[in-house]
């Protein structure tokens, strides 16, 4: 039982680490590159405007998609590794 609890706790901690890492990127591309850091990216031209504009109108959405698929793939693998997946 002690083993099972430890296992469960490390599974949950691994999930939290993954979520925190993903949300850091989530915030960086939208609130960071797309909004707050845009003036600092103004020197990088993208199709008639700058990188910040690209992140605000395209880059953040593409990153969000990649993040969700990465999270789903990692978690579904973790489920199996920790033996908590659905049979």
């Amino acid at each position: 039982m002690a083993d099972h609890t430890n296992n469960a706790q490390s599974y949950w901690r691994a999930n939290l680490r993954l979520i925190i890492g993903s949300l850091v990127i989530w915030a960086l591309v939208s609130y960071g590159f797309g909004i707050l850091l845009r003036p600092y990216l103004a020197g990088i031209p993208v199709g008639g405007t700058d990188l910040g504009f690209w992140f605000a109108q395209q880059g953040s959405i593409l990153t969000f998609i990649a993040l969700i698929f990465f999270y789903a793939w990692r978690m579904n693998k973790l489920d199996k590794e920790f033996g908590v997946d659905e049979e």
Partner: peptide, 14 residues
Amino acid sequence: LMGWTGGYVLLAML
């Protein structure tokens, strides 16, 4: 654009 798509990251993880 960001607001109406970024919510899905929260939905998927949280």
